[in-house]
Write a protein that binds this DNA or RNA. Structure first.
Lengths: 162, 162
DNA sequence: CAAAACAAGTTGACATCGTCAACATTCTGT
DNA sequence: ACAGAATGTTGACGATGTCAACTTGTTTTG
């Protein structure tokens, strides 16, 4: 459970998963992770998930669309932003017409952010774009089926949250 | 080969890998990808690969360390930046003492960017940090061995470049 | 060989984007 | 009712990348 907290290069050979990999191969893992993160991240795909939507905006919009009575801070938490940053990204989405802000009836301090029809359209379009990208990549991995790749990535995403 | 170029939601059932997944599951893939990209990307890990190094800086430093006679623009290409942006990120690394610029002897226009000892140290430290993160995540995926996960991610990273 | 075209790198002006701190407004607990 | 806490907004700011114009050095071409 805590075996990695004191270093994963442990040379004692006990409780270490990395024994049979040389340092070079290990380093390759972090490069792969970064490669993937960079490719699908904020700078990848020409810096936009689809026309008119950056990656943080996509994530924010997704959060709004999947959260009933979504507060501004909920968006902030999804992104790891401060409440100030949350306000700003929600405002941007509002200016683009993808969300609207409504005062909550239960709590006057809270803004309920809701996705608009236009927002749903662009969200789905961005989704498609990512899927297309993924499909293209998956095709270049003949040693894996698409289903297997999807399964592992899904498990990994789930592990990130847990 | 070209089956996805006309849409991967094809309903004809021919040449379509997505048949047996509902739309929700498909959408989950792009969410997983984004989850991963966000986690390991520029905003993840507190916005720094390790103390004093952002993700673009890490990538730049890695490029420098693996490219003999690395020109400023080589760094730019690795990141998808303009030559102007490349100049700026190299300058930042230089100011931090992680690289140094030398005029090329073969071509007076070119700056050979070289990593310093201090740069190598921080690069390795950032590497470790990523590895640690990965290890933590991998532990939360009991259905896969670390080796299998590594293998797939490596294949995926390779596919991105190809 | 000289002039034009091209390529590498730098720089000033600028746009974007997120943080910090201070603030207004609205709840909550006692 | 009142102190304290929570939500959200805003001005000032810093970080970061682009664009266009420029300098310098190389290559091509007539």
């Amino acid at each position: 459970m805590e075996k990695h907290s004191t270093g994963y290069f442990g040379s004692d050979g006990i409780n270490c998963d990395w024994n049979d990999m040389e340092k070079a191969a290990i380093s390759a893992i972090s490069r792969s992770l970064i490669e993937i993160a960079w490719y699908f991240g904020p700078q990848g795909l020409n810096g936009e998930c689809c026309e008119n939507l950056t990656l943080p905006e996509f994530i924010a919009l997704d959060k709004v669309s999947t959260t009933p009575h979504c507060a501004v801070q909920d968006v902030g938490h999804a992104l790891g932003f401060t409440k100030s940053g949350a306000t700003r990204i929600v405002n941007r989405l509002e200016k683009k017409g993808y969300v609207q802000k409504l005062k909550s009836h239960e709590d006057g301090r809270i803004c309920c952010v809701e996705i608009t029809k236009s927002g749903e359209r662009v969200l789905s379009s961005a989704d498609s774009r990512y899927l297309e990208q993924f499909h293209t990549i998956a095709e270049k991995m003949p040693e894996y089926t698409v289903a297997d790749t999807v399964k592992l990535l899904t498990a990994m995403a789930k592990a990130l949250k847990g």
